[in-house]
Structure formats: C-alpha cells, structure tokens
Design a protein around this nucleic acid. Structure first.
Lengths: 267, 267
DNA sequence: ATGCCTTTGTGAACGCGTGCACAAAGATGG
DNA sequence: CCATCTTTGTGCACGCGTTCACAAAGGCAT
C-alpha cells in the first residue's frame, strides 16, 4: 500500500503519535534479542510481553507504521527490525558530541548502547583546560573553545549535555548556534531553546523523588492498615495545619549550600 | 501490601494525578532557587516560566495539594517548598543502595543531587570480587553476597540498578525479596516485578533514539523544502517497497555481537 | 469603606492515548 | 476447495491530562 495514509490528523505532525515513537525503541530492543536467537516470526502477544506493554497497544503502534504483519502468523522479526530502525532513523550514522566530561560524561562516553544503535561519539568536550587531551573512552577530550569547529566539521546535529546546571544553558546556546538541533540534557535545569530544536531531559534526582512519593504513599497506607480502622482510615495527605514557623524552619534547614548544582560535575 | 489493587498504574489513592507528581520535583527545584535568592513570594506565571510549564497547569497542579496561594499576591516560596517537600516525602531521609558500580554506578554515587534532596547512599554493591572494599565516592564497595543483609540493616526501600542488562532482573528479584519496593532501573531491560513494587526506568539509548527520529523528520522536511515543490512535496517517509533482501541484509548487518548489552558495565 | 487591580482556583471543553472487542485476512488441515 | 483456527488491524468508547476562560478572593489606594 505504500502511501496509503488517507487521513491526515490535522496536525501535520506526520502520523505516528509521540507516545508510539517513544515505544519503538522498546520494540526494537525486544526484536533485536529475538533476532539474535534466530526467531523468525513473533506474535503481537509475545512481543508485547517481551517489551512490557499491552498487545493491543503494540498492534496499534505498528499500524501507524504500516501493515507489516501476517494475520494468523505474526510479524517477521528481521523485517520489523529493519522497518523500525528505518523509521527511527537508525539506518544512518548519527555523530554526537558529549559536553561535560565529568563522572557522568565519562560514563556516557563509555556507554556501549550508543555505538550499537548507530550513534557515534564524535567528540568529548570539556571546559576544564586540565582535561584537554586526556583520553576518555579511548578518545582525547577537547576544549570548549573548539566546540563550534568540532560541530561543523563533523556535521553533528545531536548534542549531549552533562555539565553542571550552571553551564547548561550557555552550552546549549553554543551548540545550537553551531548547528545542533537535538539535545539530550542531563543537567538539572530547564533549557530554553528556539523553536525547531528538540530537547529531551534526563534527571536522575527527579526520578528518585517520584519514587519517594510512591514509597511514602505505600508506607502511609501500610501504617493505616496496621493501625486498623481507626476512625477515618484514610487520613488524607492533605496537610494538617502546619504552623508557618515549622514550614519556615524546615525550608531553611533544606536550603543547603549545594543548591541544585551538580550532577556529577565535570571539573 | 495493604489493599493491593491488582493493576493500577498510578494514582490509586486520593487525588494527585501521576502527571502532577512528576512535575512537583520541577517546581521544587525552581522554588529552591528562588528561596536561595531570598525571594519571598512568586506568582504562578513566574514560577511556571522558571519551571518551563504552562501557568494554568501549574495552578491546577497546586490545587491538588491544597490552596496555598494568596489571590492577588502569589505563593509564599518557603511555605510552598515545605509543602511540596512534604508531599513528595522528602522531609524524611531515604537510604538507597546502588547496585552495579561501573562507570554509571560510580557516576551516580558521586552525584550531588541525591544527598541534597534527602536521599542518602547507604551502600554501593557490585558483583565483582575485585571491586570489594575499593572506595568509590568515599565509600567502600560491598559484595553482592551481602546484599540482603545491607538492605535489611539499613532499612532500605529504594534501590538503583546500574548493572548490565543481563544481571538486572536477578538483582531486582533479590532487592525485592530483601524488602526494596521502589527501583530506579538504568539497565536496558524490562524488569518484571510483583504488584506493589514501583519501577522507574532511565534508558539513555532510548532517549537518543527518540531524538534521532525527530532529527530525521527535520532532515526530511528540510530536504523536501530545499528540493522545491517537486511533485508530491511531502514524499512521505512511508516506506517505499523495500525488497525483503535489503531488509534482511540491513537487519543482519545490525545484528552485532554486543546486542543490548549495556550500559556502562561494571566489571 | 469602596472600588479597582491582580492573581488564584476551578468548571468545562477538548484532544490524546489506551484498551476492548470484533471483523477481516490469511494459514492450515481435511 | 472448503471449513476452521489463529492473529492482525482497527472502530469505538472511555478516561486522563491539558488548556481556556472566568468568577471569586484578597490587597491596596483613595
């Protein structure tokens, strides 16, 4: 059917919902594993289980890409691997630069998952002169001064920021000015970027805080359950009347000198 | 597990949508910054800008917590910091363990953002005997054999997995059996866990793949625009009839020996 | 007090994503 | 060639999250 897309979803966003795009790498991973085990075909049910999603959702996701399955049989693993790779743009080589070679930056540089997916670390960049030339992951760290040159010479469009929060915005501006249009940001800051630039954020601290919320909720429920049905069992988290003084004190005690600074700072 | 509802992705308890919970840390960060600058009050508009969200969304989010604002004035920064911290469960100390002290695990151990939020790294655990006792981030690495003891003695409920993909599932099972009920997973695998256990996933490779998708889309649009209105300007990336041979070849070339291995492996 | 101005809190509409349930499509066996 | 069985692809309904728009609430000047 090739072009078969009759209906245009108003938003020229080119079909494929964002939620689906976010799951494609998941499917790809599961499919790659099957491929390595030389499994020829897989049903939506099996693949969905491997990817940890609902099978109906998986089928709907694939339906946005086209009709690649065979009814009564399932999906051809190799073919699907190719189609998803293609859709994600992984059939081409993406040079990326990592800016901020601290603990995290170094870990990213050594991360095997990049190279195996068509991403090539083109350069490691750090602002610390002492880092210049130092080999990390078998590649010499280069100085921020050469950032623009490195970007343009390597045709880099994707940048990874692993600097402290304070430097992130400025780094992003230089990256963008030099031609980068997609940024993966590990610094705990909100980057403000012009239209047309995509930013994805990975924030380790935020993930933990979300877990803490649920953990607290669990603890609260358990306590309530253990305490038995004493009156209003729910005891809603809705705050009791805390004195302003207590609030201020708590806030003050939390106001550490470290602020939000780091993330595994580079230098 | 108290009232362990079978399948309930999120807000099982009263109020506070999951999406809102995910944004609270963002607000907290912005508020902390304001607090350090001794700003007494802030309007929803200002705070929203600092957090990178829509002001209406922010107000609605806060409305789930209660009415902490003053109409015509705004929100009291210190008070709000306290209330959000409280809601997220950050007023108490959360001991966490990090399992898998490779590049990434070490980076996490050194990450300052944890300690500043009430998270305390209680122990670093690795399966490599050679790592045992080796100091990382001023703390000796302990061996996996003692995992259960470490968890129970420290009352740990939150675990961070930074092992290779192959080890993640087993590690998670041991963590859970020992009492952990929340896991932050950096390994590129789908963990299957019992009800009542929360898992959050951070996958570096997936984030890059999503960026690549959008990057490719941009490139395609640009090319189409540059090429002028040649016939069907859209030339949808919707697949042309690729030969199965081509697909198979591409798939095969991708089938590297590294597979999904992972992440910044530990040993 | 009174009226004006600012900003919150929220009712309501809308759009997206999810999951159900089933018809269509193809394989398989007789 | 027909019947049956399996699995895809999708129409539909529902619920969550986002956004708009505005009334209510409080501060402040007069």
């Amino acid at each position: 059917m090739a072009t078969g897309r009759t209906h245009r979803p108003a938003t020229r966003s080119r079909g494929i919902p964002e939620a689906t795009v976010a799951r494609l790498p998941l499917y790809l991973r599961a499919l790659t594993a099957l491929s390595e085990r030389s499994v020829p075909t897989v049903s939506s049910e099996e693949l969905a289980a491997a990817a940890g999603v609902n099978s109906a959702k998986l089928r709907k996701d694939f339906s946005y890409l086209g009709s690649y399955g065979t009814r009564g049989v399932g999906y051809d693993v190799e073919y699907l691997v190719y189609q998803i790779s293609r859709e994600l743009g992984l059939t081409q080589d993406w040079p990326v630069v990592i800016v901020g070679i601290g603990n995290l930056g170094a870990a990213l540089a050594n991360y095997g998952g990049f190279a195996s997916r068509g991403f090539r670390v083109a350069a490691l960049i750090d602002a610390d002169p002492a880092m210049k030339g130092k080999p990390v992951a078998g590649m010499p760290v280069q100085h921020t001064d050469d950032l623009e040159k490195i970007i343009s010479e390597n045709g880099v469009h994707i940048g990874v920021i692993a600097t402290p929060a304070g430097a992130a915005q400025q780094v992003s501006e230089r990256l963008i000015a030099a031609g980068v249009t997609s940024i993966l940001n590990f610094a705990p800051t909100v980057l403000s970027v012009p239209d047309g630039v995509d930013v994805r954020k990975v924030d380790l601290s935020i993930e933990l805080q979300i877990l803490a919320f649920h953990e607290q909720r669990k603890a609260g429920e358990e306590a309530a359950a253990v305490a038995g049905a004493a009156g209003d069992a729910v005891t809603p988290p809705s705050l009791r009347a805390d004195t302003a003084a207590a609030a201020a004190a708590a806030a003050a005690s939390r106001k550490g000198p470290d602020g939000d600074v780091p993330a595994v700072m580079p230098a």
